[in-house]
Write a protein that binds this DNA or RNA. Structure first.
Length: 119
DNA sequence: GGGCTGACATTGA
DNA sequence: TTCAATGCCAGCC
């Protein structure tokens, strides 16, 4: 189609980065939470794709994609990091205990933008 | 230009 | 209750 880039779809991708960057250390969020915050509950899949793109970013554009996991608290995207344990160690370094690629006390560590940002 | 895939989630049967 | 199908947006073939 090559239609003119609507602000909407550009905003979605960009907003994902903004929200993920707002995730405080020691906390984790989910694809669905971010997608829902952006207005698309089932758009979680796109959020995961955004993470993949965010993985390539660095410096000021860096996005802590290791803090974004699925709603089950499982590090599904750990394989996309340099090492299969890089994501786990990154979270543990922030004080998030992980056992068997699973975040412990996930409900307690969960960071919901719709709630924390009160938006 | 059109269609398939993908770090998920929700809904329907 | 569990399994299967659908939806989302962007990138790649």
């Amino acid at each position: 189609m090559m239609k003119e880039p609507n602000e909407r779809y550009r905003n979605f991708f960009h907003d994902v980065y903004e929200v993920v960057r707002l995730i405080p250390p020691g906390r984790v969020s989910t694809y669905g939470a971010i997608a829902g915050y952006l207005g698309s509950r089932q758009g979680a899949r796109t959020v995961g794709w955004a993470m993949q793109a965010a993985h390539a970013l660095s410096g000021p554009e860096y996005v802590p994609c290791h803090r974004v996991i699925n709603r089950l608290g499982v590090l599904t995207g750990k394989q996309f990091f340099g090492s299969p344990t890089a994501m786990q160690e990154a979270l543990e370094a922030e004080g998030v205990p992980i056992i068997d690629d699973q975040v412990q006390d996930f409900a307690q560590r969960f960071w919901d933008p719709s709630t924390e940002l009160q938006a």
